[in-house]
Design a protein around this nucleic acid. Structure first.
Lengths: 90, 90
DNA sequence: TCGATATTTTGATAATAATCGAAATATAAA
DNA sequence: TTTATATTTCGATTATTATCAAAATATCGA
């Protein structure tokens, strides 16, 4: 939960997720789209990985990242809880 | 968007929102529930206010905060976008 | 094996954020 | 008008995060 919100709290990381929505990409391909350096992107990928939002798969010398939105269920659930009016006594 | 995700990226602030779900509260009442000091809570309230997640209303010497979940629409929309498979050519 | 490519890790720095005590502001009550 | 209460603002400190350059790791191709 904490890691999920932390991962989402950065425009670069959210942009990475948006890119991965279109297609799986290697770390290098992801880095190309940004002005920040590769070590920085690697760090962002690590945080996204820790949150479970992306899944790495090694292929030859590349690491291909894919989007995993299933972990967002938890996020949706919390937001829904907050959004819904609380029942008396609950 | 940025301010929204930032506001949600803190357990104390999320707890404040959960409390306000049950009932409107003054800054002092909110602060009672936490170990951190009042200036710190005031700062958290400010960030939540900036994100539009809470609305202050002055009543005598108190400020009563209420939850405003309408701004979460934007958040839901983004999460849904990410979750849904991308259309070809989109 | 050697050199090139892909990615991460390390170590350092700079920017951002959380926290506190003290002071400031505003309102109320005596 | 003085005192008390509610809340915020200020200034400083600490903790966390983003970023970079350089070094390390892993795999490939010649």
């Amino acid at each position: 939960m904490d890691k999920l919100f932390k991962a989402l709290n950065d425009p670069t990381r959210r942009a990475i997720l948006e890119q991965l929505r279109a297609k799986d990409m290697t770390a290098g391909e992801i880095a190309e789209g940004f002005t920040v350096g590769k070590p920085t992107i690697s760090h962002h990928l690590d945080l996204l990985k820790q949150a479970g939002l992306i899944l790495p798969e090694k292929n030859r010398q590349f690491i291909i990242y894919s989007l995993n939105t299933s972990v967002l269920e938890e996020c949706f659930a919390w937001l829904l809880k907050i959004t819904k009016k609380q029942k008396r006594g609950a």
